[in-house]
Protein backbone atom coordinates (compact mmCIF):
# COMPACT_ATOMS: atom_id res chain seq x y z
CA UNK A 1 0.00 0.00 0.00
CA UNK A 2 2.79 2.43 0.88
CA UNK A 3 4.39 1.74 -2.47
CA UNK A 4 1.08 2.35 -4.18
CA UNK A 5 0.72 5.75 -2.49
CA UNK A 6 4.29 6.71 -3.34
CA UNK A 7 3.76 5.71 -6.97
CA UNK A 8 0.58 7.76 -7.19
CA UNK A 9 2.31 10.79 -5.67
CA UNK A 10 5.16 10.46 -8.16
CA UNK A 11 2.67 10.26 -11.02
CA UNK A 12 1.00 13.42 -9.76
CA UNK A 13 4.16 15.51 -10.17
CA UNK A 14 4.28 15.55 -13.99
CA UNK A 15 0.51 16.04 -14.06
CA UNK A 16 0.70 19.14 -11.86
CA UNK A 17 3.68 20.38 -13.86
CA UNK A 18 1.72 20.17 -17.12
CA UNK A 19 -1.31 21.85 -15.54
CA UNK A 20 0.79 24.71 -14.22
CA UNK A 21 2.48 25.17 -17.59
CA UNK A 22 -0.80 25.29 -19.52
CA UNK A 23 -2.38 27.64 -16.99
CA UNK A 24 0.66 29.90 -17.05
CA UNK A 25 0.39 30.21 -20.82
CA UNK A 26 -3.34 30.94 -20.52
CA UNK A 27 -2.55 33.70 -18.02
CA UNK A 28 -0.61 35.64 -20.62
CA UNK A 29 -3.64 37.38 -22.02
CA UNK A 30 -5.36 38.31 -18.79
CA UNK A 31 -4.88 41.97 -19.56
CA UNK A 32 -2.24 44.44 -18.50
CA UNK A 33 -1.64 43.99 -14.76
CA UNK A 34 0.21 47.28 -14.58
CA UNK A 35 -2.80 49.20 -15.86
CA UNK A 36 -4.96 48.17 -12.93
CA UNK A 37 -2.38 48.00 -10.19
CA UNK A 38 -3.32 49.30 -6.81
CA UNK A 39 -6.69 50.39 -8.10
CA UNK A 40 -5.32 53.44 -9.90
CA UNK A 41 -3.95 53.68 -13.36
CA UNK A 42 -0.26 54.12 -13.87
CA UNK A 43 -0.07 56.51 -16.77
CA UNK A 44 3.51 57.65 -17.19
CA UNK A 45 5.25 55.29 -19.56
CA UNK A 46 8.50 55.50 -17.58
CA UNK A 47 6.64 54.32 -14.47
CA UNK A 48 5.04 51.51 -16.42
CA UNK A 49 8.42 50.36 -17.68
CA UNK A 50 9.86 50.38 -14.19
CA UNK A 51 6.90 48.47 -12.78
CA UNK A 52 7.05 45.87 -15.51
CA UNK A 53 10.74 45.34 -14.76
CA UNK A 54 10.05 45.06 -11.03
CA UNK A 55 7.36 42.46 -11.66
CA UNK A 56 9.50 40.60 -14.17
CA UNK A 57 6.92 41.15 -16.90
CA UNK A 58 9.59 42.34 -19.35
CA UNK A 59 11.09 38.85 -19.47
CA UNK A 60 10.08 36.20 -22.02
CA UNK A 61 7.33 33.86 -20.86
CA UNK A 62 9.69 30.90 -20.38
CA UNK A 63 11.79 32.95 -17.95
CA UNK A 64 8.67 34.23 -16.19
CA UNK A 65 7.52 30.64 -15.71
CA UNK A 66 10.95 29.65 -14.41
CA UNK A 67 10.92 32.52 -11.89
CA UNK A 68 7.38 31.60 -10.86
CA UNK A 69 8.35 27.95 -10.37
CA UNK A 70 11.78 28.14 -8.71
CA UNK A 71 12.09 31.82 -7.85
CA UNK A 72 14.80 34.25 -8.92
CA UNK A 73 16.91 34.63 -5.81
CA UNK A 74 19.68 32.63 -7.46
CA UNK A 75 20.16 35.24 -10.14
CA UNK A 76 20.28 38.97 -10.59
CA UNK A 77 17.61 41.09 -12.24
CA UNK A 78 17.83 44.37 -14.07
CA UNK A 79 15.72 46.98 -12.26
CA UNK A 80 16.88 50.30 -13.73
CA UNK A 81 16.66 49.22 -17.33
CA UNK A 82 20.31 49.87 -18.31
CA UNK A 83 20.68 46.31 -19.57
CA UNK A 84 22.94 45.24 -16.70
CA UNK A 85 21.45 42.83 -14.16
CA UNK A 86 22.67 44.01 -10.77
CA UNK A 87 19.89 43.56 -8.15
CA UNK A 88 19.55 40.11 -6.60
CA UNK A 89 16.05 38.61 -7.00
CA UNK A 90 13.70 38.20 -4.03
CA UNK A 91 11.25 35.55 -5.11
CA UNK A 92 11.47 32.00 -3.84
CA UNK A 93 9.21 30.26 -6.30
CA UNK A 94 6.22 27.99 -5.96
CA UNK A 95 8.29 24.90 -5.27
CA UNK A 96 9.49 26.54 -2.07
CA UNK A 97 5.99 27.68 -1.14
CA UNK A 98 6.21 31.25 -2.43
CA UNK A 99 3.32 32.00 -4.77
CA UNK A 100 4.46 35.58 -5.23
CA UNK A 101 2.66 38.73 -4.24
CA UNK A 102 -0.74 39.98 -5.26
CA UNK A 103 -0.71 42.81 -7.78
CA UNK A 104 -4.03 44.26 -6.69
CA UNK A 105 -3.38 44.26 -2.94
CA UNK A 106 0.12 45.53 -3.53
CA UNK A 107 2.77 43.39 -1.96
CA UNK A 108 0.44 41.12 0.01
CA UNK A 109 1.58 37.50 -0.40
CA UNK A 110 -0.78 35.37 -2.47
CA UNK A 111 -1.03 32.74 0.25
CA UNK A 112 -2.13 35.42 2.70
CA UNK A 113 -4.78 36.71 0.26
CA UNK A 114 -6.12 33.17 -0.20
CA UNK A 115 -5.89 32.37 3.49
CA UNK A 116 -8.04 35.40 4.35
CA UNK A 117 -10.88 34.11 2.20
CA UNK A 118 -10.61 30.36 2.69
CA UNK A 119 -12.51 30.12 6.03
CA UNK A 120 -15.51 32.00 4.58
CA UNK A 121 -15.70 29.65 1.62
CA UNK A 122 -15.23 26.56 3.75
CA UNK A 123 -18.02 27.72 6.03
CA UNK A 124 -20.45 28.25 3.17
CA UNK A 125 -19.48 25.20 1.14
CA UNK A 126 -19.12 22.93 4.17
CA UNK A 127 -22.59 23.82 5.40
CA UNK A 128 -24.04 23.22 1.95
CA UNK A 129 -22.25 19.91 1.56
CA UNK A 130 -23.56 18.81 4.96
CA UNK A 131 -27.14 19.75 4.07
CA UNK A 132 -26.78 17.97 0.72
CA UNK A 133 -25.37 14.76 2.21
CA UNK A 134 -27.88 14.50 5.04
CA UNK A 135 -30.80 15.39 2.79
CA UNK A 136 -29.65 13.05 0.04
CA UNK A 137 -29.23 10.15 2.46
CA UNK A 138 -32.70 10.66 3.96
CA UNK A 139 -34.49 11.19 0.67
CA UNK A 140 -32.42 8.66 -1.28
CA UNK A 141 -33.04 5.87 1.23
CA UNK A 142 -36.71 6.78 1.48
CA UNK A 143 -37.30 6.69 -2.26
CA UNK A 144 -35.28 3.51 -2.65
CA UNK A 145 -37.43 1.75 -0.06
CA UNK A 146 -40.64 3.04 -1.59
CA UNK A 147 -39.66 2.83 -5.24
CA UNK A 148 -42.30 4.22 -7.65
CA UNK A 149 -44.38 5.67 -4.81
CA UNK A 150 -45.85 9.16 -5.16
CA UNK A 151 -43.09 10.67 -3.03
CA UNK A 152 -40.43 8.89 -5.07
CA UNK A 153 -41.85 10.40 -8.25
CA UNK A 154 -42.18 13.87 -6.72
CA UNK A 155 -38.61 13.78 -5.42
CA UNK A 156 -37.36 12.57 -8.80
CA UNK A 157 -39.15 15.41 -10.56
CA UNK A 158 -37.87 18.04 -8.14
CA UNK A 159 -34.31 16.78 -8.36
CA UNK A 160 -34.52 16.86 -12.16
CA UNK A 161 -35.62 20.48 -12.03
CA UNK A 162 -32.84 21.35 -9.60
CA UNK A 163 -30.30 19.59 -11.77
CA UNK A 164 -31.45 21.56 -14.83
CA UNK A 165 -31.51 24.96 -13.19
CA UNK A 166 -28.71 27.47 -13.38
CA UNK A 167 -27.86 28.37 -9.81
CA UNK A 168 -28.40 32.08 -10.35
CA UNK A 169 -32.02 31.42 -11.22
CA UNK A 170 -32.85 29.67 -7.96
CA UNK A 171 -30.76 32.27 -6.12
CA UNK A 172 -32.64 35.20 -7.66
CA UNK A 173 -35.96 33.42 -7.16
CA UNK A 174 -35.40 32.76 -3.45
CA UNK A 175 -34.03 36.28 -2.99
CA UNK A 176 -37.14 37.68 -4.64
CA UNK A 177 -39.54 35.60 -2.55
CA UNK A 178 -37.92 35.47 0.87
CA UNK A 179 -36.26 38.81 0.90
CA UNK A 180 -37.95 41.30 -1.41
CA UNK A 181 -41.54 40.13 -1.10
CA UNK A 182 -41.40 39.14 2.57
CA UNK A 183 -40.10 42.62 3.30
CA UNK A 184 -42.91 44.10 1.21
CA UNK A 185 -45.53 42.06 3.05
CA UNK A 186 -44.12 43.06 6.42
CA UNK A 187 -42.95 39.54 7.27
CA UNK A 188 -39.56 38.76 8.80
CA UNK A 189 -37.29 38.62 5.76
CA UNK A 190 -33.91 37.10 5.02
CA UNK A 191 -30.83 39.16 4.19
CA UNK A 192 -29.54 38.80 0.65
CA UNK A 193 -26.01 40.11 0.46
CA UNK A 194 -22.84 39.91 2.48
CA UNK A 195 -21.84 37.85 5.44
CA UNK A 196 -23.21 39.98 8.25
CA UNK A 197 -25.01 43.26 8.85
CA UNK A 198 -22.32 45.93 9.42
CA UNK A 199 -24.65 47.62 11.91
CA UNK A 200 -24.83 44.51 14.07
CA UNK A 201 -21.38 43.05 13.59
CA UNK A 202 -20.02 39.63 12.77
CA UNK A 203 -21.93 37.50 15.25
CA UNK A 204 -22.73 33.81 14.83
CA UNK A 205 -26.44 34.53 14.46
CA UNK A 206 -25.85 37.14 11.77
CA UNK A 207 -23.59 34.87 9.74
CA UNK A 208 -26.04 31.97 10.06
CA UNK A 209 -28.89 34.21 8.92
CA UNK A 210 -26.91 35.38 5.89
CA UNK A 211 -26.03 31.80 5.03
CA UNK A 212 -29.59 30.52 4.68
CA UNK A 213 -30.26 31.64 1.09
CA UNK A 214 -26.89 30.75 -0.46
CA UNK A 215 -26.82 27.38 1.31
CA UNK A 216 -30.35 26.66 0.15
CA UNK A 217 -29.52 27.57 -3.46
CA UNK A 218 -26.36 25.47 -3.52
CA UNK A 219 -28.12 22.50 -1.91
CA UNK A 220 -31.06 22.69 -4.29
CA UNK A 221 -28.82 22.51 -7.35
CA UNK A 222 -26.40 19.81 -6.19
CA UNK A 223 -28.90 17.75 -4.22
CA UNK A 224 -30.15 15.88 -7.30
CA UNK A 225 -26.92 14.12 -8.19
CA UNK A 226 -26.34 12.82 -4.68
CA UNK A 227 -29.89 11.70 -3.93
CA UNK A 228 -30.19 9.82 -7.24
CA UNK A 229 -26.91 8.14 -6.46
CA UNK A 230 -27.95 7.11 -2.95
CA UNK A 231 -31.23 5.82 -4.34
CA UNK A 232 -29.62 3.65 -7.01
CA UNK A 233 -26.94 2.17 -4.77
CA UNK A 234 -29.55 1.45 -2.07
CA UNK A 235 -31.82 -0.24 -4.63
CA UNK A 236 -28.93 -2.38 -5.79
CA UNK A 237 -27.95 -3.45 -2.29
CA UNK A 238 -31.52 -4.10 -1.13
CA UNK A 239 -31.99 -6.74 -3.81
CA UNK A 240 -28.97 -8.76 -2.74
CA UNK A 241 -29.01 -12.17 -1.15
CA UNK A 242 -27.55 -11.20 2.21
CA UNK A 243 -30.37 -8.72 2.76
CA UNK A 244 -32.89 -11.46 2.08
CA UNK A 245 -31.05 -13.65 4.56
CA UNK A 246 -31.13 -10.91 7.17
CA UNK A 247 -34.83 -10.45 6.55
CA UNK A 248 -35.60 -14.16 6.73
CA UNK A 249 -33.87 -14.58 10.08
CA UNK A 250 -36.24 -11.95 11.43
CA UNK A 251 -34.03 -8.96 12.01
CA UNK A 252 -35.95 -5.73 12.62
CA UNK A 253 -36.30 -3.57 9.51
CA UNK A 254 -34.29 -0.57 10.77
CA UNK A 255 -31.36 -2.86 11.60
CA UNK A 256 -31.44 -4.31 8.09
CA UNK A 257 -31.68 -0.92 6.41
CA UNK A 258 -29.25 1.12 8.45
CA UNK A 259 -26.74 -1.48 9.59
CA UNK A 260 -26.70 -4.05 6.82
CA UNK A 261 -27.74 -2.28 3.66
CA UNK A 262 -26.54 1.27 4.21
CA UNK A 263 -23.06 0.13 5.19
CA UNK A 264 -22.44 -1.39 1.78
CA UNK A 265 -24.49 1.15 -0.14
CA UNK A 266 -22.45 4.00 1.31
CA UNK A 267 -19.19 2.72 -0.20
CA UNK A 268 -19.65 4.30 -3.62
CA UNK A 269 -21.18 7.36 -1.97
CA UNK A 270 -18.00 7.88 0.05
CA UNK A 271 -16.08 8.00 -3.23
CA UNK A 272 -18.36 10.62 -4.71
CA UNK A 273 -18.20 12.78 -1.59
CA UNK A 274 -14.43 12.41 -1.38
CA UNK A 275 -13.98 13.53 -4.96
CA UNK A 276 -16.21 16.54 -4.39
CA UNK A 277 -14.48 17.68 -1.20
CA UNK A 278 -11.51 19.43 -2.87
CA UNK A 279 -13.96 21.46 -4.92
CA UNK A 280 -15.33 22.93 -1.70
CA UNK A 281 -12.09 24.88 -1.49
CA UNK A 282 -12.79 26.46 -4.83
CA UNK A 283 -16.02 27.92 -3.58
CA UNK A 284 -18.96 28.75 -5.74
CA UNK A 285 -18.19 31.52 -8.20
CA UNK A 286 -21.73 32.41 -9.19
CA UNK A 287 -23.35 31.95 -5.77
CA UNK A 288 -20.71 34.02 -4.03
CA UNK A 289 -21.06 36.73 -6.63
CA UNK A 290 -24.86 36.98 -6.29
CA UNK A 291 -24.92 36.88 -2.51
CA UNK A 292 -21.78 39.00 -2.22
CA UNK A 293 -20.20 36.31 -0.05
CA UNK A 294 -16.51 37.12 0.53
CA UNK A 295 -15.16 33.69 -0.44
CA UNK A 296 -12.73 32.08 -2.85
CA UNK A 297 -15.04 32.16 -5.86
CA UNK A 298 -15.43 35.91 -5.66
CA UNK A 299 -11.73 36.31 -4.95
CA UNK A 300 -11.02 34.42 -8.15
CA UNK A 301 -13.51 36.46 -10.15
CA UNK A 302 -12.36 39.83 -8.80
CA UNK A 303 -8.68 39.14 -9.28
CA UNK A 304 -9.19 37.54 -12.69
CA UNK A 305 -11.01 40.64 -13.88
CA UNK A 306 -8.15 42.84 -12.64
CA UNK A 307 -5.46 40.64 -14.23
CA UNK A 308 -3.91 39.69 -10.90
CA UNK A 309 -2.20 36.62 -12.33
CA UNK A 310 -0.24 35.54 -9.20
CA UNK A 311 -3.46 35.22 -7.17
CA UNK A 312 -5.37 33.53 -10.00
CA UNK A 313 -2.53 31.07 -10.55
CA UNK A 314 -2.34 30.46 -6.81
CA UNK A 315 -6.04 29.63 -6.55
CA UNK A 316 -6.01 27.33 -9.58
CA UNK A 317 -2.89 25.49 -8.45
CA UNK A 318 -4.32 25.08 -4.97
CA UNK A 319 -7.45 23.49 -6.45
CA UNK A 320 -5.38 21.18 -8.67
CA UNK A 321 -3.21 19.99 -5.81
CA UNK A 322 -6.28 19.43 -3.65
CA UNK A 323 -8.00 17.44 -6.40
CA UNK A 324 -4.95 15.23 -6.96
CA UNK A 325 -4.41 14.62 -3.23
CA UNK A 326 -8.06 13.83 -2.61
CA UNK A 327 -8.12 11.38 -5.51
CA UNK A 328 -5.31 9.44 -3.86
CA UNK A 329 -6.97 9.64 -0.44
CA UNK A 330 -10.27 8.39 -1.86
CA UNK A 331 -8.59 5.42 -3.52
CA UNK A 332 -6.79 4.51 -0.31
CA UNK A 333 -9.88 4.92 1.87
CA UNK A 334 -11.91 2.88 -0.58
CA UNK A 335 -9.46 0.01 -0.42
CA UNK A 336 -9.55 0.20 3.36
CA UNK A 337 -13.37 0.16 3.46
CA UNK A 338 -13.74 -2.55 0.84
CA UNK A 339 -11.25 -5.34 1.52
CA UNK A 340 -12.03 -6.93 -1.86
CA UNK A 341 -9.98 -4.18 -3.50
CA UNK A 342 -6.22 -4.61 -3.54
CA UNK A 343 -3.76 -2.25 -5.17
CA UNK A 344 -0.51 -3.64 -6.39
Amino acid sequence: MTRYIIRRLLQAIPLLFVISLVLFVLMQNMGDPVATMGGRSVTRSADRERLRRQLGLDKPIAVQYLYWLVGNDWTKIDLDGDGVAETPGQRQGVLRGDFGASLVNRGKPVLQVIWDRLPNTLLLMGASELVIIIGALLIGIYSALRQYSVIDHVVTAISFVGYSMPIFFIALLTMYIFSVNFKRWGLPYLPTVGMFDPGVGKTTGQVALHMILPVFSLSFIYFAGYSRYVRSTMLEVMSQDYIRTARSKGLPRPVIIYLHALKNASLPIVTVIGLDLPLLLAGAIVTERIFAWPGMGRLFLDHASRSDTPVVMGILMMISVAVVVFQIIVDVVYAWLDPRIRYS
Partner: peptide, 24 residues
Protein backbone atom coordinates in the same frame (compact mmCIF):
# COMPACT_ATOMS: atom_id res chain seq x y z
CA UNK B 1 -5.54 10.10 -20.62
CA UNK B 2 -3.07 12.21 -18.60
CA UNK B 3 -4.15 15.23 -20.66
CA UNK B 4 -7.78 14.33 -19.99
CA UNK B 5 -7.07 14.06 -16.27
CA UNK B 6 -5.25 17.38 -16.28
CA UNK B 7 -8.25 19.04 -17.88
CA UNK B 8 -10.62 17.42 -15.38
CA UNK B 9 -8.54 18.65 -12.48
CA UNK B 10 -9.80 22.20 -12.67
CA UNK B 11 -13.53 22.89 -12.41
CA UNK B 12 -15.04 23.84 -15.76
CA UNK B 13 -16.24 27.29 -14.75
CA UNK B 14 -12.73 28.33 -13.67
CA UNK B 15 -11.29 27.14 -16.97
CA UNK B 16 -14.06 28.90 -18.87
CA UNK B 17 -13.31 32.20 -17.15
CA UNK B 18 -9.58 31.94 -17.77
CA UNK B 19 -10.11 30.96 -21.41
CA UNK B 20 -12.77 33.60 -21.98
CA UNK B 21 -10.23 36.18 -20.81
CA UNK B 22 -7.49 34.62 -22.93
CA UNK B 23 -9.48 34.80 -26.16
CA UNK B 24 -11.42 37.96 -25.40
Amino acid sequence: MRITEAMLNIPQLFLLIVMAKFFS
